[in-house]
Design a protein around this nucleic acid. Structure first.
Length: 159
DNA sequence: CTTCTTACA
DNA sequence: TGTAAGTA
């Protein structure tokens, strides 16, 4: 049974988890040169940290995953364009799988009638080596928006 | 110290 | 795509 509960992602104890370009490069193995190039081409999306004097790029968890997926297909021999397409499809598939396998206990409808699924934290060995930053202090939220719209995957870190 | 842009190999 | 330069 889906019950209206105050959404988790607005909890004052959690802030959106973002990564600087150097961190993304270190985690995924993709060079900063490539990341900037993909960003310029619009394959990935970054936001600018206005408070910083450098006005540097920051990437959310969703884009970190995307960058890693693109790189994975790139290493399999696909062209950048093909790798991007595959990565997008793969990412969407993963999201749908998550939504299917999560129990109703993790389903929440917030004030704006948006479906939110708490994925908890990843602690299996497969993801741990790749995303070591996901731990007890990090929450992953999968948000299903109105039909047709892109689902959103965001990580939040306890501050 | 890290990131940014620009430019050249 | 890597790397260097000169910044912020």
């Amino acid at each position: 049974m889906v019950k209206p509960v105050k959404h988790l992602y607005s909890s004052p104890n959690f802030k959106k988890l973002v990564f600087r370009i150097g961190e993304v490069s270190e985690i995924t193995g993709v060079s900063t040169r490539q990341i900037r190039y993909w960003d310029e081409k619009g394959l990935i999306e970054s936001t600018r940290k206005e408070t910083e004097k450098t006005n540097s790029r920051v990437f959310d968890f969703k884009n970190l995953i995307l960058i890693n997926l693109i790189n994975m297909y790139l290493q399999q021999g696909f062209t950048l364009a093909a790798a991007f397409e595959r990565a997008q499809k793969r990412q969407n598939s993963i999201k749908r799988i998550h939504s299917v396998f999560n129990t109703f206990d993790n389903v929440i409808v917030d004030d704006e009638d948006v479906l939110v699924i708490d994925l908890g934290y990843f602690d299996d060995e497969k993801t741990k080596h790749l995303f070591g930053i996901i731990d007890e202090n990090t929450e992953l939220h999968y948000q299903v928006k109105e039909d047709g719209q892109e689902p959103d995957l965001t990580a939040y870190k306890k501050s």
